[in-house]
């Protein structure tokens, strides 16, 4: 692959991560990371919506009147989200029941608007598609890491399966109730940012 295109895919996962570096999409990172499963469902739905919204906006980029470009972007995002929701309700009813909560959250996710505005409006469809994939992957990875620790320490489970054995509880161990509350998501994200900045020389500020 063209190194420039490859960068579009890999940069958002690390040194240009939408959550830890650009600090976008924090609200949904707080809301859906109590358990691993909703975090994964959310990541996949954002992946789909962002990749296709990027392509559609990129295809339309030369025709969109600049005064109403934000509205056009919103219409496209809402269109995709509703379409996905309808199809899931008909064919994958169980998944749709989990997803329905996130529909509103996807539309308001600032990563999507941010990428449409910053990238798709000025680039060709294929790079826009890659940018969408890369950014949603970067978003998803952080979501999954945060959800893993919150579920493990907050509920003693991973993907709803109990991993902390019963004898540990009998010895007096307790699940940390604070982990299931939103502030801990912020602190976990903070710790990830700290580790990432310490490990990546490009990100260390003077």
């Amino acid at each position: 692959m063209d190194p420039k295109n490859k960068k579009l895919l890999t940069n958002p996962i690390n040194i240009d991560n939408p959550i830890t570096i650009q600090v976008l999409g924090i609200c949904s990172a707080l809301a859906v990371t109590v358990k691993l499963e909703p975090a994964v469902v959310m990541s996949i739905s954002v992946l789909f919506v962002l990749a296709f919204a990027n392509v559609i906006i990129s295809l339309l980029r030369n025709t969109i009147p600049s005064r109403i470009r934000i509205i056009v972007q919103l219409v496209i995002i809402a269109f995709l989200v509703i379409l996905v929701d309808q199809v899931l309700k008909a064919f994958l009813y169980d998944v749709s029941k989990q997803l329905s909560v996130f529909v509103g959250l996807i539309i308001t996710n600032c990563i999507i608007m941010g990428r449409l505005e910053a990238f798709a409006l000025a680039n060709k469809p294929f790079p826009a598609f890659l940018d969408g994939l890369g950014n949603s992957a970067g978003y998803g990875i952080i979501l999954i890491i945060v959800a893993f620790f919150r579920e493990l320490l907050g509920s003693g489970t991973v993907w709803e399966i109990q991993v902390i054995p019963n004898f540990v509880y009998e010895m007096g161990y307790q699940n940390n109730g604070l982990m299931i509350l939103p502030p801990m998501a912020l602190i976990v994200v903070g710790i990830i940012i700290w580790i990432q900045r310490a490990k990546t020389p490009e990100l260390i500020e003077n």
């Binding site: 109590v34 909560v101 299931i180």
Partner: peptide, 10 residues
């Protein structure tokens, strides 16, 4: 439920 918070009310 229709829309309770995942992992909590849900």
């Amino acid at each position: 439920h229709k829309a309770e918070t995942p992992g909590l009310g849900a």
